[in-house]
Amino acid sequence: MNEVGYVIGLVAVSAAVLALGVWFVRREIRDEVSPALVLWTGYAVVAAFVVFGVVRTSWVVLS
């Protein structure tokens, strides 16, 4: 498997997941499932985990 191709795929999939996450949080807020602050805080934690994972993995794979 090509390392550069792997990293491009990883970044693309992660960006798609984060975009889907925004859609999901907005849907949950619209349906009043939980307070908006709680949902956006949860999203920020998940997004931070995803971004850290992508950066770390990309760094290791490409180095």
Partner: peptide
């Protein structure tokens, strides 16, 4: 998130 991290771990090992 755990499953996603396992998948990234396995596929990155595969890629390397």
């Amino acid at each position: 998130l755990g499953m996603a991290s396992f998948i990234v771990g396995i596929t990155s090992a595969w890629a390397r």
